[in-house]
């Protein structure tokens, strides 16, 4: 159904500034400019799922910065990092009566939080209080106001850097141990 909807809605996609996916393994140094960049190390590259026709060229990036804090880091009550996620997506088509919404969810998708609806520039900003999480961009009917779950298809997805954390079992000196013993 979503594919059909997208096909019906598709006109020529509005060209937006391209945002290259971040190479998370590349060495990134701060540049000499008046404004420093958010930490590239923790940036989340958003990749298209190609579930909806016309969205396969979409690229995106979610940049993490700590919420403003007098301390250098901002923490939630339980000690988790409290960060602001700035989502930017390019090359999304316009689809009648629909809009794109950014969400954060835990890896097990048992908790979901709405980051915000992408604006006409494909951008939105919102807080995240989890250590490991996924970012998804979904296609929703205009005015969809649900705060804790999405209804439409996932258009792009990405994982926080912390989601890469893996058991040492099966790696390096612990190669003989099976990582599945530790839940992986």
């Amino acid at each position: 159904m979503w594919t059909l909807l997208a096909l019906l809605a598709l006109g020529p996609a509005e060209e937006r500034p391209a945002i290259a996916p971040v190479d998370l393994d590349a060495t990134v140094f701060a540049t000499c400019s008046a404004v420093a960049e958010p930490p590239a190390y923790y940036a989340i590259s958003l990749v298209p799922t190609r579930q909806v026709v016309g969205t396969g060229r979409a690229t995106g990036l979610a940049q993490m910065t700590f919420d403003r804090s007098p301390f250098g880091v901002e923490l939630a009550a339980d000690g988790s990092y409290r960060t602001t996620l700035a989502v930017e997506v390019a090359h999304l088509p316009s689809i009648d009566d629909h809009e794109f919404v950014a969400w954060a969810t835990t890896p097990s998708i048992d908790r979901i939080a709405r980051i915000g609806t992408l604006d006409e520039d494909g951008a939105t900003t919102g807080p995240v209080e989890w250590n490991k999480f996924l970012v998804v961009i979904t296609l929703e009917p205009v005015g969809y106001s649900e705060e804790t779950s999405w209804s439409g298809p996932v258009i792009l997805r990405g994982m926080s850097r912390s989601g890469r954390m893996h058991t040492m079992a099966g790696h390096g000196p612990f190669e003989q141990l099976e990582c599945r013993t530790f839940g992986y």
Binding site: R161, S162, G163, R164, M165, H166, T167, M168, H171, G172, P173, F174
Partner: peptide, 9 residues
Amino acid sequence: LSMEADTFY
């Protein structure tokens, strides 16, 4: 060697 896994994140 252990840093291989330690620096996943």
